[in-house]
Write a protein that binds this DNA or RNA. Structure first.
Length: 920
RNA sequence: GGGCGAUUAGCUCAGCGGGAGAGCGCUGCCUUCACACGGCAGAGGUCACUGGUUCAAUCCCAGUAUCGCCCACCA
């Protein structure tokens, strides 16, 4: 084996081997365990969030596979309507054309081409992460099967009256020229103004003042509203005002919606361009005047001077005209929420169009109940609150998009505009007896991407066919996803799954946090702070990293800043850490719910951990080659019994933590066992056994067996998190251990009962550790070279401790580097020494004339102070009658025990301090 | 406006009703026959603040402050 762990040398080789052997595919045996991957954008690339999420899913999948489950982790990608179409449109733009010139069919060919070309990038990257997904079952949301499911669901919902077409206000993206759903609109506070306009009363008796943040919409005003109880205006209700700039009189209406305290208490009503005004318009039968084109310019319904002006140019002009007419009362600075499209980032307009909607309330009801009664559990549970909050206030879902890339809506129109919905045109004609003489035109629009995503858990298993896969794996076991798509995706999957697949789509929803940069910033291209998971795996030099971060920026002026920050943070680029180190880092950081700052220090630490395992394995393999297949358990040494017992506990912990989705705690347990117990103590404790000629062969064999058996089991424990290094080592270790399996992937996950718990061994070994630590501490603080052999004297040695000394002196001598351990009898006068305490026993390191009295006194005094402080607290507690009376018996007993041992410790320390004083 | 979360060592984070923890960083010593991606020893914290509950609070409750996120139609 190499002296240090080289991830690049093994990772890709093992992945290929596993995939070719078919280990990722469902075994067909055992309890089904299924995870559906949240399908990434087909043209996307792997980012830190994916890598994190994939690590979680793969760890769970590998764990359950090792436990014998029939596992299916199913991969796939999403067509991501708007996002993908935008990318291709940008390419066309660069080539000097656009989709309209190309036409729909040719454009779609281009998108498919782009999908083919870039679509497997993310699959390749998923492989680099070690993801054990069933590639044979990879799906794409626009596959034939999934498209069928989409049509099926659409038709069924339509037939039940749960999908309808309606003319309403929608969020209109004037750049993309499509409707978007409420969820796709991001409202952020921006600075703006509040313009106060005077609307003259038709009666000529003055004017009303209305305030608006959007002056241009006044061209579409069809009323002014006041509160019904507002005495200032009640006499005016029913009268009209003359709408300035327009040759129209509009009514003054009374409506509860108006807040009389705000502004003047008068509100201009533009039913065609504001969601609230639309409602008011409905209540008062006001006309709707649409004054905008699809580009959000002023249309022909507005007075001539404004036609054709962009909305913001029109705003300027209108304000100028109000000033000219002396109808502008005042302008205030004002903070307002500006709605922007989440893709285009342009301000969206409420816009009156025909769209398709899903009536969601009837679907939401059972979906709410499923979470309420625990058929679906959120982890952590508080996300269920977020879910309920949204589900209880859910609005109908606008599912049509004026795009070309996506599932085309399965609705046809005849020349009279009648609507026919069916799975395809032939079905529509048959169902409605429409012969070929009638021309049918299919709806031009496509469905919201999330419509097909909502069907993902069952459409990917073959629904509407009742396939074996569907029967085995639906409902799936757990959904692993981020909180940002609970509404977009999770809620809709639950609704659709319950409606069409007859059950909840998953039993648990594990919500993980967002990966942020080291400063807590969201990683984004425009901030220039993205880390590519592959750069962490393979390493990257500084120039490449800078180039990656600064090319293709939307705001090129940020380049110098990004470059500077990058050069400062990564002066030497990023070293190669390997997939396992990255995965272990994600696992260790995956505590519940909260966001994660990705810290390079952590990944470096876990890279070192992989190397530690590697070297521990080198040691073990070096010492166990050809070891007998069995051993006599009676010949096991104390350290053998101890490490087996510790491993048993560690296995319990690891399993328990993984089952509860606490990968961070599982990682921690395994890390600490491996490093602090197996490496730091056990491997060191085997050296005296294996090197000492006096130790029996049977005992050596038992130790060799323990070395290899613990290593082999530990590798299995760690495999779900760090699959590559564990497989590489396991292949060698398994042979020595006598395991003939072909891969660690399919070995059983260790059981706690595989190794004997042994409380007695743990107690005894703790005593040995205490002894060694005591001597080391003296060495460290008294500046005695670690290599210098020492003699120690023991005082106040109890009978059972004498027995331990006889039995385990070998370990003490080796680990503490002692030549001689001798026991002082009562009355023996000890030489000048540095002292360590172990329970009631004193360990004395004779210092002859070398002792630094001051240093030793300081050292003891420090211990004394600490002990005295602790004792003081405990005595205060015990002096409290209420504590003694009310605290549980066990707690009181424990405190009394601590009290007496501290008293003993203090007495001994004081004695030593007094002795030192004699030397001064 | 409503809801959720965070505040613990220099940094990144665990923990939790009865003795403050890890990794990284820092200090000192050590090229010891698995590992310098290492070993040994060590320094470092009024667990944001104020009250309350309790025999006992970093932990539970209430409030305050700061930071963050989500939802919401106030022109």
């Amino acid at each position: 084996m190499e002296k240090s762990y080289q991830p690049a040398a093994i990772e890709q080789r093992w992945y290929k081997t596993w995939e070719q052997a078919g280990y990722f595919e469902p075994s067909g045996n055992g309890q089904p365990y299924c995870i559906m991957i949240p399908p990434p954008n087909v043209t996307g690339t792997l980012h830190m969030g994916h890598a994190f999420q994939d690590t979680i899913m793969d760890t769970l999948t590998r764990y359950h596979r090792m436990k014998g489950a029939n596992t299916l982790w199913q991969p796939g990608t999403d067509h991501a309507g708007i996002a993908t179409q935008m990318v291709v449109e940008r390419q066309l733009e660069a080539a000097g054309t656009n989709r309209h010139e190309l036409g729909r069919d040719k454009f779609l060919d281009k998108v498919w081409e782009w999908k083919e070309q870039s679509g497997n990038t993310i699959s390749k990257q998923l492989r680099r992460m070690g993801s054990s997904v069933a590639w044979s079952r990879e799906r794409f949301t626009m596959d034939e099967g999934l498209s069928k499911a989409v049509a099926e669901v659409f038709v069924k919902l339509y037939d039940e009256g749960l999908i309808y077409r309606g003319k309403r206000l929608v969020n209109w993206d004037p750049v993309l020229h499509t409707a978007v759903s409420d969820l796709e609109v991001i409202s952020e506070e921006e600075s703006g103004h509040l313009w106060h306009f005077r609307y003259p009363l038709s009666s000529g008796d003055g004017y009303l003042v209305v305030a608006t943040t959007r002056p241009e919409t006044m061209l579409g005003d069809t009323a002014v509203a006041v509160h019904p109880d507002d005495e200032r205006y009640s006499h005016l209700v029913g009268q009209t005002v003359d709408l300035p700039l327009c040759d129209r009189a509009i009514p003054i209406v009374a409506d509860d919606y108006v807040d009389p305290e705000f502004g003047s208490g008068c509100v201009k009503i533009t039913p065609a361009h504001d969601f609230n005004d639309y409602e008011i318009g409905q209540r008062h039968q006001l006309p709707l005047i649409n004054i905008l084109t699809v580009d959000a310019a002023i249309n022909e319904n507005a007075p001539a001077p404004y036609r054709g002006l962009d909305r913001y140019a029109a705003r300027k002009q209108i304000i100028a005209d109000f000033v000219r007419l002396e109808l502008l009362e005042t302008i205030e600075d004002h903070k307002l929420m500006v709605p922007r499209g989440d893709r285009s980032h342009v301000v969206v307009e409420p816009y009156l169009t025909d769209q398709w909607y899903v009536k969601v309330a009837p679907l939401a009801k059972p979906a709410i109940e499923a979470v309420e009664d625990g058929r679906i559990r959120f982890i952590p549970d508080n996300w269920s609150k977020t879910y309920f909050e949204w589900m209880h206030n859910i609005q109908d879902w606008c599912i049509s998009r004026q795009l070309w890339w996506g599932h085309r809506i399965p609705a046809w129109y005849d020349e009279q505009g009648n609507i026919y919905v069916g799975r395809d045109e032939a079905e529509v004609r048959a169902k409605h007896a429409i012969d070929d003489s009638v021309t049918l035109r299919q709806d031009e629009d496509v469905l919201d991407t999330w419509f097909s995503s909502a069907l993902w858990p069952f459409s990917t298993l073959g629904w509407p066919e009742q396939t074996d896969a569907l029967k085995s794996f639906y409902p799936t076991s757990v959904l692993v996803t981020g909180f940002d798509i609970i509404f977009f995706w999770v809620a809709r999957m639950i609704m659709m799954g319950m409606k069409f697949a007859g059950d909840v789509p998953f039993a648990e929803v594990y919500i993980h946090g967002l990966i942020r940069d080291q400063d807590g910033q969201k990683m984004s291209k425009s901030k220039g702070n993205v880390l590519d998971p592959l750069d962490l795996i393979d390493g990257v030099d500084l120039e490449t990293l800078v180039a990656k971060r600064t090319t293709g920026l939307m705001q090129p002026q940020l380049k110098p800043k990004i470059e500077k920050a990058t050069r400062k943070q990564f002066p030497d680029g990023i070293p190669e850490f390997g997939t396992d180190a990255l995965r272990f880092t994600f696992a260790a950081l995956a505590s519940t719910g909260r966001d994660i700052r990705f810290d390079l220090g952590r990944i470096e630490g876990y890279r070192n951990f992989c190397n530690k395992i590697w070297n521990a394995a080198r040691y073990v393999l070096m010492n166990t080659e050809g070891v007998a297949a069995t051993h006599d358990a009676a010949a096991e040494s104390l350290p053998d019994r101890w490490i087996r017992s510790r491993l048993s506990k560690t296995i319990t912990e690891a399993r328990d933590h993984i089952e509860h989705y606490r990968l961070d705690l599982a990682a921690k347990s395994l890390y600490e066992f491996t490093w602090n117990e197996y490496c730091d103590w056990y491997l060191e404790l085997t050296k005296p056994v294996l090197q000492d000629e006096a130790v029996s062969e049977a005992s050596k064999t038992a130790t060799r067996r323990t070395l290899i058996e613990v290593l082999e089991a530990l590798l299995r424990c760690l495999h779900p998190m760090i699959p590559f290094v564990t497989e590489e080592i396991w292949q060698r270790a398994a042979k020595v251990a006598g395991n003939t399996g072909s891969t660690i992937m399919l070995q059983p996950y260790p059981e706690p009962t595989d190794f004997a718990a042994d409380g007695e061994a743990e107690t005894q070994l703790e005593w040995i550790m205490g002894f060694v630590l005591g001597v080391r501490q003296i060495r460290g603080e008294m500046d005695i070279s670690p290599g210098k052999p020492l003699n120690v004297l023991l005082q106040n040695v109890a009978a059972d401790e004498r027995a331990r000394l006889d039995e385990h002196g070998l370990y003490l001598r080796k680990l503490a580097r002692l030549v001689n351990i001798s026991t002082l009898e009562d009355g023996d006068e000890p030489p000048t020494s540095a002292t360590a305490l172990l329970g009631g026993m004193k360990i004395l390191v004779p210092m002859a004339g070398l002792i630094d009295v001051v240093a030793e006194r300081d050292r003891l005094q420090k211990q004394l102070d600490r002990a005295a402080g602790d004792l003081h607290k405990i005595e205060a507690k015990l002096a409290n009658e209420n504590f003694v009376a009310r605290a549980p018996e066990a707690v009181v007993t424990k405190e009394r025990g601590r009290q007496s041992s501290l008293q003993q410790e203090i007495a001994q320390l004081e004695e030593q301090v007094a002795k030192l004083a004699e030397l001064e």
